[in-house]
Amino acid sequence: MTRKTSLDGLESAPRWIFTFLGAYATVTLLVLYLWNAAGQVFSIQGTSDSTSALSATGMAAVSLWLCLVVWRSFPAGSPLRFTWMLLALAAAAQATSGVLTDFLGTNWLLNPLLWSEQPKSGLIGQIRQAALIAGGPMRLALLAAAMLAVLRVLRKYGFPVRPAAADWAVSGIVCMFAFSRLGEACAATIAGRQIGQADWVSLAGLPILCVLSMEAMLLRRSVARMGKGLIARGWLVLGYGILLTVTGEAVLWVLSHFSQTLPLAMVSALMPLTIGSAFALVPAYQLVAQRRAMRPADSQPEDLSAGVPELAR
C-alpha cells in the first residue's frame, strides 16, 4: 500500500525538543562552572534572565504551532477538539506574554515604543501588566479548562478515576503554599509595604494552581489506567507539565526568600524552559501517534507476529 508519505520533521518533534532542552541545560551548567571559576577572579554581581525568557517564549511558540496542527486534525464535533483548542489558546497566551514582555515591555533599543521623541513609558507598563495576566492567571485558567475537558473524555471512554489520598495530599500541599503566599501578602499590606503588580497577578493565579494540581494528579492516574502507549504518553506529559508548573511557582517563591545565589538562580533560569518543553511535548507526542498511524503500510513490520506485543499474543 503506497499511502501518502508525510514523514516530515513533526514525527521527530519530541526528539528535537529533548535535544534543545539538553543542549540548553548543558550550556547553562557550563556557564555555572565558568561563573564559579571567574567569580574567584572578578566580582560578578548578577545574571541576566533574558535568554531563558526568550527560549521559553520560543518553546511556547513551538507548542502553539504543534497544538494548532493537532487541533486541525480533529474535525468539528470530535470530543477532544475543544481540549486541543484550549491547549492551543494556553500556548498562545504564553507566547503572547513572552513577546509582549521581551519585545514591547522592556526598555531596550529595539522596542518601537521607545523610538518616538516622547517614550511611552505608561504604555510599556500597561503592556507588561497585560503580559503578566496573559502568561499567568489566563493561561492557568485555560489549562484548567483543558484538563477538565480531557478528564471528562477519559472518564467517558473507560478510564474513570476518583481522587485518592495521594491526590488530596498533593493538592493540600499546594493549597498550603497558596495560603502561605496570601498570608505573606496580607501581612505585607498591613505592615504598609507595597506589593508589586507582578506579585498581585501571581497571587490571582494561586487558586487556579490548587485546582490544576488536583486535575494533574487525576490525569496522571487516569492515564496510568490506559497504559504507556503513544497516545497515553502525551497526556501523561501534560500532567507532569502541570505539576512542574506548580513546583516552579513554589521554587521561585522559595528563591525570593534566599539571597540570589548562583545555583538557585540557575535553577530558576532553567525552570521556564523545562516547563515550556513539557507542554510542547504534549502535542508532539500526539503528532507522533498520528503520523505513525498514517505511515505507509510498507514501513510497518513485515512479520506481524514479530511486532505483536507479548500481551496481545
Partner: peptide, 12 residues
Amino acid sequence: RWQLETYFGSPA
C-alpha cells in the same frame, strides 16, 4: 490487540 497496545497500552 497490537494496535490497542501500541497506541494506548496493556491496561487499556
